[in-house]
Design a protein around this nucleic acid. Structure first.
Lengths: 140, 140
DNA sequence: TACACTATTGAAAATGATTTTCAATATCAA
DNA sequence: TTGATATTGAAAATCATTTTCAATAGTGTA
C-alpha cells in the first residue's frame, strides 16, 4: 500500500497526519488517471465528508513539493495531477480515457547536444509526453 | 512582414480586418517571447488605445484556431502564446528571458515504436520541449 | 493519560483568469 | 453608399485558486 508511504513521507517532513490528508492521499495515490482538484474533492469526500476543497488544494501542493505527484499538461488543460513516477520518467496519456502510463528509456542526449550546438543554448531540462489510445480504448 | 500574412489568413477565413486585430497580430507576430493575454493587451494598447482585453482573448483564440500561434506550457503557467513554427516543430525555451526558439529534426520514431509495443498503446502524437539558457542569458 | 503548543481545518471573502451578454459600431460585399 | 452582420468594449458572470480567520485536532512531552 503506497498510500501509507506517502503519509510517512508527509509525517517525516514535519506535516501532521489528518483525516483530510489521508482521504486525499488515498484517492490520488490509487488513481490511474490525472485528477483535477475538484475531482479529488468529489472522490475524497466519499471517504471523508467534512473535507473542504481548500484543503485539497493545500494537500496537493504539499504532495507536489515532495515529488509524490506531478502536474499533467494536456491540450484541454493543465490543472490535473497524477502520482509521480520514480526517477526521470515521461508520460504517456490515453486521449480517450485519460489513463496515465510512465516510461523512461528515452535517449535525447544526441538530440540535445545537437540542438545545443546549433542554437548556442545551454540545455538543462526536457519535457516529453506521448499521446495516444490505450489498449482498452482501442477496442472500440 | 509576416503580420500581413496573418491578416490575410484571417481575411481568407472569413474574419474581418479591424484595428483591434491588426494591433494584436502585430504584437504577437513579432515577439520572440511567449506573451500572456494581459501582456498582449498592454503592448497592443500602445498601438491601439481603445483595445479591450476581451478582444485580445477572442483574437488569440482565432489565431490559435488557424495555427498561427500556439500555447506554451511552462512550469510557471500555461497561459502564454507564441507565434507557431511551420510544420512539426518543437520549442526550446530560455528559462531566464523567456525567448522561444523552434527546432525540428527530432526522430522519436524508434522510441515511439518501442513504447507502443511495450504498452499496447496506439501513439498518435508527442510533445517535446527543451528548457535552458539562451546565448545572451548565459553571459551573466 | 492529560496537556499545551501550534499546525491544520473549512467557510467565506478576495483575487485572478476567462467567458458571456449586450447594445453600439465598424467592416465589407453588393 | 448602403445594409446586413461580424466585431467591438464594458460590465457582469463564471470558474479556478489563494488568502484570511477563528475553531479544532494532531503531536510531543510531562
Amino acid at each position: 500500500m503506497t498510500a501509507e508511504l506517502w503519509l510517512t513521507q508527509l509525517h517525516e517532513n514535519g506535516y501532521r497526519l489528518t483525516d483530510a490528508r489521508r482521504a486525499v492521499v488515498e484517492i490520488v495515490e490509487q488513481s490511474t488517471r490525472a485528477l483535477t482538484p475538484v475531482e479529488v474533492y468529489d472522490l475524497a469526500r466519499k471517504k471523508y465528508r467534512a473535507l473542504g476543497l481548500v484543503t485539497v488544494y493545500r494537500t496537493l501542493e504539499k504532495l507536489e513539493e515532495l515529488h509524490l505527484i506531478q502536474r499533467v499538461h494536456q491540450p484541454q488543460g493543465c490543472q490535473a495531477f497524477v502520482s509521480a513516477g520514480h526517477g526521470h520518467q515521461h508520460l504517456l496519456l490515453c486521449q480517450n480515457c485519460g489513463r496515465v502510463e510512465f516510461f523512461d528509456g528515452d535517449d535525447l542526449d544526441a538530440l540535445t547536444r545537437y540542438i545545443a550546438q546549433k542554437t548556442g543554448y545551454q540545455i538543462n531540462e526536457h519535457w516529453l509526453q506521448l499521446f495516444g489510445l490505450c489498449m482498452d480504448c482501442r477496442k472500440n
